[in-house]
Design a protein around this nucleic acid. Structure first.
Lengths: 173, 173
DNA sequence: TATGAAAGTCGCTAACC
DNA sequence: GGTTAGCGACTTTCATA
């Protein structure tokens, strides 16, 4: 495979909290990200071979993508059910206030839960969407009960996750 | 660090579609999974060093965990916003039928979307929870409109994801 | 059945073009 | 972005408990 010598670079204006910069990613960077998103343990020489480049510049690009924060990390994807967490559910939570202090207090509490898989702050009518694991139904009920008892929590709807399709689809590239 | 010579093995009965087996994982396996969940690109020697074991048996354990399906894969975690997908939202979808054919048809359609990050089948009142990315608000509206126009879709609520807290917390170990 | 030591192969990565 | 080269990691083989 030979590298395309004139891949057009597509620039995105990235707005951060205290900086706004232009990310220059060419087609080669995109191929690197795509491969590493699919197989994050691939060796650098294998990655370089796949994108049609020698190893050193390929490694330099990976390092750059990590430094830019485009690559946030590498993780093993585990089977929660096999590890004793067969119950997966989502909770929509509504609070009685949207003041920063109230939101942050809620976040800090649930972030401390080992069972929490993700916590998304929403706008609209509900304030948070949580993804939580449990060992069994009783454990799940205990966690939901704990949420209902939290101060400022006024609405709570939970949804049982009975099947997750194609995990880790990843960001389109 | 020295390896615990008498780590109690905890067994979980794992029910699969056509098999039910007992997973034997000891504390060493758990440490391996924890480390690889945190840093999936760690070298095997570094991993072995952290869990207090020489490299060969450590590598054999990792391979075994992959073969058992406990480790499903390794993935780079990417920053969607920096890659031109700053809009993240969730959609609760209700269908007018819960027949297998209807559910599968819905799944097959949304699975084809590159913007789809996850598709969870629910029980309860709603049938699916989707996590979707978009390039901008217009793109998001287009995707939501496409869902409303799908046959059998009778309820649809979308939630804007304005902030994700601590991504990749991982399965508790 | 599992670990540990040794060794050959292969990958990583700095220095330089 | 490529080449080279020294070093370190990977992984097989075999010995051991």
């Amino acid at each position: 495979m030979r590298r395309n010598p004139s891949s057009p670079a597509v620039n995105w204006v990235v707005s951060g909290p205290d900086t706004e910069r232009v990310l220059e990613l060419d087609e080669t960077d995109r191929m690197i990200l795509s491969e590493l998103q699919r197989d994050g343990r691939m060796t650098n020489v294998e990655l370089a071979r796949r994108i049609g480049m020698s190893a050193p510049p390929c490694l330099r690009r990976v390092r750059r993508l990590e430094e830019l924060g485009v690559i946030r990390g590498f993780h093993a994807e585990l089977d929660a059910a096999q590890l004793g967490w067969p119950v997966s559910f989502f909770v929509l939570v509504g609070l009685d206030s949207q003041k920063s202090q109230v939101l942050e207090e809620f976040e800090q509490t649930v972030i401390g839960w080992p069972e929490l898989q993700a916590c998304h702050m929403l706008n609209g009518a509900e304030d948070f969407l949580l993804h939580v694991l449990a060992r069994d139904a009783a454990h799940q009920q205990r966690l939901i009960h704990e949420l209902t008892e939290m101060t400022h929590v006024v609405r709570l709807r939970s949804f049982q996750d009975i099947r997750t399709l194609s995990p880790h689809k990843g960001v389109p590239l």
